[in-house]
Amino acid sequence: MKTTFEQRLPKKNKLFIPFIVAGDPHPNITVDLAIMLQEAGASVLELGIPYSDPLADGPVIQKAASRALKNEVTLENSIKLVSIMRKKGLKIPVIIFTYYNPVLQLGEDNFFALVQQNEVDGLLIPDLPFEENESLREKCQQNGVTFISLVAPTSTNRIAKIATNAQGFLYCVSALGVTGVRNSIHDHIYSFLEEAKKYSNVPVAVGFGISNSTQIEALKGYCDGVVIGSALVQKIEELIPKLMDEETKTTALLNFKNYVSSIISPINN
Rank of each mutant, 00 (worst) to 15 (best):
S135Y: 14
G107I: 01
N101F: 08
L193Q: 07
Q116S: 15
L69R: 10
Q7M: 07
L15W: 01
E108H: 07
N77F: 07
Q116D: 13
G144W: 07
M1S: 15
S265R: 14
S52H: 11
R137H: 08
Q105Y: 08
D224H: 15
S174N: 00
L104M: 13
P153K: 07
F192G: 00
R8V: 00
N13R: 13
N110E: 14
I189A: 08
L193E: 04
F19K: 05
I35F: 09
F111L: 15
Q117Y: 00
G41I: 04
P54C: 08
I84R: 13
V173Y: 00
L239P: 10
V151R: 05
L150H: 06
P93D: 01
H186C: 04
I148C: 13
D109H: 03
R8D: 03
S230R: 14
N183D: 10
I216F: 07
S52Y: 06
I264L: 01
I125Q: 04
F147N: 12
I61G: 02
A152N: 11
V145K: 01
L47D: 09
V233S: 08
D224V: 11
A65S: 15
S211M: 05
N143Y: 06
T179C: 06
G23Q: 07
F169Y: 15
G41S: 03
E194L: 12
C223S: 12
Y259C: 05
S78N: 11
Q116E: 14
K257T: 05
V226R: 14
E39H: 06
I185F: 11
A160T: 06
I35P: 08
V233K: 02
T30G: 10
I84F: 07
N165E: 13
I17V: 15
V173N: 00
I84A: 06
I79K: 09
D245C: 09
G177Q: 07
S135M: 10
K87W: 02
K198E: 13
F97H: 14
V82E: 08
Y222W: 15
T248C: 07
F112W: 02
L243E: 02
V204N: 09
K197I: 03
I159D: 09
K88W: 00
S262D: 14
S155H: 06
Q215K: 13
A196V: 11
Q62V: 14
Q38W: 03
T74Q: 11
V178A: 12
K80G: 04
D109L: 01
S78V: 04
E217W: 01
T251Y: 09
T74V: 03
T156Q: 08
N13I: 01
C172A: 15
F130W: 14
A40N: 04
L124S: 01
T164Y: 03
S43Q: 10
S265L: 14
S213D: 11
F97C: 08
I17A: 01
K249L: 00
L45S: 08
E119L: 12
A22Q: 03
P50D: 10
F19N: 01
E131M: 01
L37I: 06
T214Q: 12
P59M: 11
K88N: 06
Q234G: 12
E39V: 02
I84Q: 15
L106A: 02
I159K: 05
K88L: 00
K14S: 02
D32K: 09
D32E: 13
R182Y: 04
L219T: 09
C140Q: 01
I20E: 00
